[in-house]
Design a protein around this nucleic acid. Sequence first.
RNA 1: GGACCCAUCGUCUAACGGUUAGGACUCAGCCCUUUCACGGCUGCAAUAGGGAUUCGAAUUCCCUUGGGUUCACCA
Length: 512
Amino acid sequence: MSRPVRVRFAPSPTGPLHIGGVRTALYNYLFAKKNNGTMILRLEDTDQTRFVEGAEKYIKESLSWLGMEIHEGPDQGGPHSPYRQSERKPMYRQYAEQLIEAGLAYYAFDTSEELDEMRKRLEASKMQPAYDSVSRMSMKNSLTLSADEVKSRLDNGDDYVIRIKLPRKEEVRFHDIVRGWVVVSTGQMDDKVLLKADGMPTYHLANVVDDYLMGISHVIRGEEWLPSAPLHVMLYKFLGWEDAMPEFAHLPLLLKPEGNGKLSKRDGDRLGFPVFPMDWIDPKTGDKSSGYRESGYFPEAVANMLAMLGWHPSDNRELFTIDELIDAFSLERVSKSGAKFDVQKAYWFNQQYLQKKSPSEVYKMIESIVEENGFDACQEYIESVVVLMREKVQFAKDIVLQGQYFFKDPTEYDQTVIQKKWKENTNQILGDIAKKFETLSEAASPEEYENSFKEACEYHGEKPGSLLQPLRVVVSGQGVGAPIWDMIALIGRDYIINRIQTAIGKISFSIG
RNA sequence: GGACCCAUCGUCUAACGGUUAGGACUCAGCCCUUUCACGGCUGCAAUAGGGAUUCGAAUUCCCUUGGGUUCACCA
């Protein structure tokens, strides 16, 4: 009961880390930190055919971007090095052989053609196409072949795999922290391969052996592993490690926002939101998948959002820093059902974090965007823009993109506002407003601009409200934007006067 | 298809067997701001269906339906 909490995140470096995988990592991390435990990163790279250049680096960078620290792993080392399964290859065979000696596993020499044939045959007779306690007796393995033939095949160097020998009918039951008791009969399972012909272990063997060797106390992983969990339980039993078996927690899946099924790479492309934590360029095809980081999301916002997709505290709180998540997290409050991803909610989370950031933090994020757009402004000016624009946008970059008028004169003017608000004398009044502004000092306050504006309106007998939108359009080109007087004061008297004069030369009143 | 998992507003979710079934996102309206946004208030909106147990069921049990995962020498 009181053994130290040791959890692992065990991705396969076959591509970019999926956002669902990120959430699995996050839950592992939160659980570890909550219980003063250890977070281990283990690379499950036993399939040499699926190795993808850069995937391991991508995984580590993603975790680090989101603020998850790894306590033991390929980079930080640890008492159970190495942490890449390919480098642990020699360790697995002995356990497979131990099972053979105990009569709990066997050699199988079937070719893939023979396996296909067997499956087709069983399917044709409406049986489950499984390599199980029944069908194994008609295959080429150390259960059916004579001891001499097995030995000669082995000595001969023939290809073989090692399969687990499951009892014909036995109930396997285990407890899952999020799902309760799960019961499956071995009659429904098949004799899975443990050691492949290339000498590498399959996931099942490697996973169980490593979890045992590394003292893993809790296996927290996606629900897609639930069907193979009984096999893992059998392996613990067969290897005599029942007492050290970790507790299981199978997490609900992240589902498509619309329609059915698991969230996939294509959904992001189609619906316009990232499915990956960071940008990823496929080294083979060159295809680019966009990530949260490059899309302008804050790592805290992404972590917060992910945490709330499948977990919920006992109160109604939704905004949590990582430390607060650690404090509040518990596996018992993870939900059972899959969660559909909601883009709107993701925007909302990001917006909430944007509001909390200090101007200088936001400045750092958008500095490069200002430059990329060819704008020239000092930090102080940009930070003032941040203060005025921050509440209107969901992403920091939109401060620049939607507030371009802070950095350059408008070249186009919102036509719908012009059509709606312009009257014969509008240009004339705007011109008078510009003249009023000329009497102000260069460092005039927002209030002074506002008063001058009101005086001009009054002089013409116009309600200020009817000129407010036109003024905004000639100054910014847009019908909506930052608070107008603050905006004008920040841009500066001479620029504003110039903009008004340029605009009234371009905009003409027309009836209809 | 077999096995397993799941089922509360459109979405994420809350609710010791006793609540007018709560919150958040979205949407609509109002207030604030002489615009927009933020914020505040209000509204729309759910226990998949059927049985059983119980004084009482969203909550326990069974069936149906629906959805999901998984059935490789991939993880």
